[in-house]
Each structure stands twice: as structure tokens, then as C-alpha cells.
Nucleic acid binder design. Structure first.
Length: 429
RNA sequence: GGAGAGGUGGUCGAGCGGUUGAUGGCACCCGCCUCGAAAGCGGGCAGAGGUGAUGAGCCUCUCGAGGGUUCGAAUCCCUCCCUCUCCGCCA
């Protein structure tokens, strides 16, 4: 959610950001008009309330309350009726009332883009910031991970379909073990880099989901239970970001860095036909997430740091990858700036997203009410929130399988992972 | 799931129809004292919104959430949510 005050005082900045995202900025005119109407209605209401209060206090002080009440009755009745109407009007216009037109407009305004975000309409305009490693050259015909996995008996798609339908998979034996090793490896590295490990709930309330801005972004993509009105998390970003919601954090505690290993659940309803083979896109996948609550002045440094935390994992796993800065048209709703980490996927002959690291500035913090105090005397301010995958387990696993496959159909385990896996070759004798 | 108790400011905890947005303790901040610190003493210290200059001041709202009664509600009534204790069930 954007700060209405920023929209009011610097509408041009918001307009520019919307345009860069390829959105129609004319909604701002409606926002500004409704906001003016709202404030005028609010002033009317407050005037009536103030007068009513004064009269009530006079009655409270009077020795003969009955007489004092009778005397003021006509005016009080007028005020009661008046403020009831004004209350109604304010409720219709208020930006903080669910379902009001102003609120609806505000909820659909994406975060302000950072100036450093490159221009461009879609992913073709994304800018590669740096690359690491060379795509492997095979002296045999490399196989996609689903063929490798089934041949090695570590991936089972047929039985997964039988149990749960499409877009599910089963890991078996060394495959399951490798996935667990990756999770452990990622969490350990995060801990070393100062992240506090959290084991959060996988089901959260509608309010929590709303507070991290997922309801607009993923609303069709989320699994939901009608009985309890609980949502299965689409990413651990949700519980980790909301973790300190409604709190005022001591400035000395910033930055707060959290990590969690959780499954993620997504309907992926609109994604039919895209990357359907294998484990690239699933209804359920595991991920280690990294979240920062940052001092606002340092959040863009924090984004570099967070991105480096994720990238270091790919380097340690010896996986060729590149870091791209998303262009204006490709940056997500919540984010001011995003770097994607893309790993080389031989079967696609392309780099594919394995992590997305975003600075959401105060956009989520405002919804979630995550604040801090600069010092004992200052007013609470919103922190900046950042999130990134570090990393998605399934995609790392498939990248590892495809990049480290050998002519005999076995797969080498990267050295850094060996102690975690307990073996150095998958399918070795 | 059943029975009971309760949800108040950063925290603990009073208040249970009328200048109470809220006594007091702790924490925190400023000052005095001190070589320095502790202790002690004095003072300050909730949040949101509107208005003003993103100042002072003024105004409104907020005591889990939402409704109601009343001139007036943290205080009374209703609904919902949550927490705790005991019982039941259970990995």
C-alpha cells in the first residue's frame, strides 16, 4: 500500500512510476479527488463531534444533570442526526474502510519503483548485472531432469499423478535425500550469515495474507480452506514478513534477518502449458526463504546483500547463473526493485529463475504495521521489508541434476553438498 | 469439543457510566547529584488521522474487533475473534 500522503504531495512521482510500469496513471486523478472529498467530509464530522463532546462535558459538570440535558436536548438531537449522516459519508469515502472506492483504488496501486530500475515493458528488457560460470558443454546428448530422474529412480511422476493429479511429483531415495541436503545446506549458510531460523505456520489468516500484499498478487493462485478461512502460504515470505507485524521494533535490533524452510503452495492456474514437464512448476514445492526488516535508509544496500547471500549459494554449488535487474514492466506489485537469480537449465538451453530478491521498501510494512523508532524521542516509522529465495529446492535440484549429469546417466554431487548428502554420485554403484 | 477466567499504552498493572486517553510500577529519555556510575531527587514519555510548514498549537478517533443502550461508555448489553486454566480427544 502506498502512502496516501505521498500521493497527495507528490502525485507526479507516483504517476511516473505507474507509467514506467506500463499502467494507466489516470486512476490517480480519481484517488486525489476522492481523497479531497474524504478529508472535507472528515472535517465536517469532526466539527459536529467536537460540539457534541463539549455539550456532553457540560452536562457532566452540571449540578442538575436532568435540567442541563433538557436545555441542550434540541441541539444534541440535531447534532446526533447530523453526525450520523456525516459518519455515513466518511465511511463511504475513507481509505481505511474495506470496500470503499478510495481503498479499492489504493489497494491496486503498486509500489513506487526505484530510480535505478531499468526501463522496459517485459522480461526482454531485463538487464544482466553479472554472470557466473559457463554453461556446461557435454560430449554426449544431455537429458532433461525428468528423464534422468525416472531412469535413476529418484523422481516418480506417474505415482504422483495417481496420488494428487498433475503438477505434483515424488522424490525417492537419493532424490529425496538430496532435496533434504539442499534445505539443510541453505539453512546452515543463512545462519552463518546472520539469519535467524524460523519454523512458521504454513497456514495463515486472511488478515496476514492481506498484510503482505499477496491477496492482490496471488489471489487466484492460493489454496484456501473455506471452513477456517485459512490460506496455505504461497511462500514463506508471508509468515516471515508478517512475523513482526503490529510491533514497534527497537532501532538497535535492525536489520532483522529471518530464514525459513517451508513448503509453498500455488494453484498455478494461469500457467498451463508453460514448463509443464518435470519439477519446474509445481502446486507444492519446498523453498528456503530469506527476509530482512531493514532500516529505511539502508534497504537498497540490504538488497545487494540479500542478493549476494542467495548468489553465494549458487557459486558454492558450482551452478552457472546470472543476476538480472528486472525492468520496470517486470517488477512485481510489492517491490520497488528486484533482482532475479537465473540458473542455467540445459534442457531449456536457457537461464531460468531460481530466486527473486526484492526490496519492498515500506509497502508491506505499512500494511503489516511493522515500525521502528529511530531513537527514544522520535515517532515510529515504517521499516523496509525485503525478501528473496535462498533458494527454491526443487529448481536447484533440477539444475543440479541437469548440469552435473554424466554420460552414463549418473549425477555428480557438488563438493559443497557432499557432506550433507552423504554421497558423491547419484546412481553410482 | 465441554466448563470457567480474561483481553487496557513499550511492558506490568489499576480503573468498572461523567473534565480518565486513561492512577501507579518497570523500561526508556532529559536534568540535578557524582571524579564516573549506581542509588536518590525533579521532569518527560501511547498510537492513528485531520488541520498547520513533514514546526508549535488545535481538533477527532482508538482501552481485542464489530454492533447496541446513553446527552455521555475502557466501564452496561449483544455478536465475533483471541489468550489462559481445568476436563475430553489426539500426533
Amino acid at each position: 500500500m502506498l502512502d496516501i500522503v505521498v500521493i497527495r504531495r507528490d502525485p507526479d512521482r507516483v504517476r511516473r512510476s505507474l507509467q514506467r510500469r506500463g499502467l494507466d496513471p489516470s486512476v490517480l486523478d480519481d484517488v486525489l479527488r476522492l481523497d479531497t472529498e474524504y478529508r472535507s467530509a472528515l472535517a465536517d464530522l469532526e466539527r459536529a463531534q467536537s460540539e457534541r463532546r463539549t455539550l456532553s462535558e457540560q452536562i457532566g459538570r452540571a449540578p442538575d444533570k436532568a435540567a442541563a440535558t433538557a436545555e441542550r436536548r434540541p441541539r444534541l438531537d440535531v447534532l446526533a442526526k447530523l453526525s450520523e449522516q456525516q459518519q455515513e459519508r466518511v465511511r463511504e469515502l475513507a481509505p481505511d474502510v474495506e470496500g470503499s472506492p478510495l481503498r479499492a483504488l489504493l489497494e491496486h496501486l503498486p509500489n513506487l519503483l526505484d530510480e535505478s530500475v531499468p526501463d522496459g515493458a517485459d522480461e526482454r528488457a531485463n538487464v544482466t548485472v553479472r554472470a557466473w560460470g559457463e554453461p556446461p558443454r557435454f560430449d554426449f546428448t544431455p537429458k532433461p531432469h525428468w528423464e534422468l530422474g525416472e531412469a535413476l529412480g529418484i523422481l516418480d511422476f506417474e505415482r504422483a499423478v495417481r496420488l494428487s493429479g498433475s503438477r505434483f511429483s515424488i522424490l525417492k531415495g537419493d532424490g529425496a535425500r538430496l532435496a533434504r541436503a539442499l534445505a539443510q545446506f541453505f539453512l546452515d549458510r543463512a545462519t552463518v550469515r546472520g539469519y535467524v531460523e524460523i519454523a512458521p505456520p504454513y497456514l495463515v489468516t486472511r488478515a496476514t495474507m492481506w498484510s503482505t500484499g499477496q491477496l492482490s498478487k496471488f489471489s487466484d493462485a492460493m489454496f484456501h480452506d473455506d471452513d477456517t478461512d485459512l490460506y496455505l502460504i504461497p511462500t514463506a515470505e508471508v509468515p516471515l514478513t508478517a512475523l513482526r507485524g503490529d510491533e514497534i521494533i527497537d532501532a538497535a535490533e535492525l536489520p532483522c534477518k529471518y530464514t525459513a524452510f517451508t513448503p509453498c503452495f500455488r494453484k498455478e492456474a494461469g500457467a498451463a502449458g508453460k514448463e509443464t514437464r518435470g519439477i519446474m512448476r509445481q502446486h507444492q514445492f519446498d523453498k528456503v526463504e530469506l527476509v530482512w526488516l531493514s532500516h529505511p535508509e539502508r534497504s537498497f544496500e540490504a538488497l545487494e546483500s540479500l542478493t549476494e547471500d542467495a548468489a553465494s549459494l549458487l557459486r558454492e554449488l558450482e551452478l552457472p547463473h546470472r543476476i538480472v535487474a528486472l525492468c520496470a514492466g517486470d517488477v512485481g506489485f510489492n517491490a520497488a526493485k528486484t533482482y532475479d537469480l537465473e540458473v542455467w537449465v540445459p534442457s531449456a538451453k536457457a537461464y531460468r529463475e531460481i530466486s527473486s530478491c526484492s526490496n519492498c521498501t515500506d509497502f508491506q510494512a505499512r500494511r503489516s504495521a511493522i515500525r521502528f523508532r529511530r531513537d527514544a524521542k522520535s515517532k515510529p516509522e515504517y521499516v523496509h521489508t525485503l525478501n528473496g529465495s535462498g533458494l527454491a529446492i526443487g529448481r536447484t535440484l533440477l539444475a543440479l541434476m541437469e548440469n552435473f549429469q554424466r554420460a552414463d546417466g549418473t549425477i555428480a554431487v557438488p563438493r559443497a553438498l557432499e557432506p550433507y548428502a552423504g554421497f558423491s554420485i547419484v546412481g553410482g554403484v
